[in-house]
């Protein structure tokens, strides 16, 4: 079983102008991914873009891997324009995964960070207090699915176009930081832009919460060799592709 394989495109679904779901069918056997792990994807034989791009696993079944991503640059544009039957190069599953939650848990997603948490709430159905934030209503995707998989869903938009107005980190912290005893041992999982994760750390650090964050960095190899994707840990640099992408919040120097 090799983690480097070819896969056939079995579905390309545009949720709106910016968000795409790509379904691929690996050729040959492949490892089952855990929530939080990622894959390097690349449409074949092209030097520009040159490198594979890392994508968190969004959903997986026995024969299909799905990725939800935002169309932002050349690489994601190319992936979003692939046709059923096209073949791409894949490396994965890679990196660390979200540790198993105990009881009910909290999930905090910012923007396309929802992709990596979706897999977690689907695996642990009906147990997530899900806080899902974006800049605008248009950037909130798959809301009905997420609601049905969660115990409770709170939507947050920065422009107040939907749900609670403001930042998702504040909405989450305001809701869960009611009493200290509520927080002890609580599992919180977060994925989103770095400023969001940093703000979450500011609100939750030192309160006894088990908080796990999924980080993103530019990446070349995905397997721990190039040392290009590091982030500042407490004592040393940590590779997002190897020690991460999921880190315990207190391992990272914010």
């Amino acid at each position: 079983m090799s983690r480097f394989f070819k896969a056939e495109i079995t579905g390309v679904k545009l949720l709106n102008a910016d968000f795409c779901i790509l379904d691929i069918k690996p050729q040959g056997s492949h490892d089952t991914p855990l929530p939080g792990q990622f894959y390097m994807l690349q449409s074949i034989s092209c030097y520009d873009p040159l490198l594979k791009r890392p994508f968190s696993i969004f959903r997986s079944t026995d024969d299909t891997l799905s990725f939800l991503f935002r169309i932002r640059g050349k690489a994601t544009q190319i992936l979003s324009r692939l046709n059923t039957g096209d073949v791409i190069d894949v490396i994965g599953p890679l990196g660390s995964s979200y540790p198993e939650p105990e009881g009910d848990f909290v999930a905090v997603a910012g923007g396309v960070g929802v992709a990596s948490l979706y897999n977690l709430i689907e695996k642990y159905k009906g147990r997530a207090h899900f806080f899902y934030g974006a800049k605008t209503k248009e950037e909130l995707v798959l809301v009905d699915n997420i609601r049905s998989l969660s115990k409770e869903l709170t939507l947050v938009t920065q422009d107040c176009s939907c749900g609670v107005g403001g930042l998702v980190t504040d909405a989450c912290a305001d809701a869960i930081c009611v009493t200290d005893s509520m927080l002890k041992g609580l599992h919180v999982y977060a994925c989103g832009p770095n400023p969001m994760l940093k703000a979450l750390n500011t609100r939750l650090a030192g309160k006894g919460v088990n908080c796990y964050v999924s980080l993103e960095e530019n990446m070349a190899c995905g397997v721990g060799a190039c040392l290009g994707c590091v982030v500042k840990g407490i004592n040393e640099y940590k590779r997002v592709c190897k020690e991460g992408p999921v880190f315990s919040m207190d391992e990272i120097q914010w």
Binding site: E217, N218, L227, K232
Partner: peptide
Amino acid sequence: QGNPPPRLVE
């Protein structure tokens, strides 16, 4: 230790 991130760009 090496350089601070970001360390690579395509």
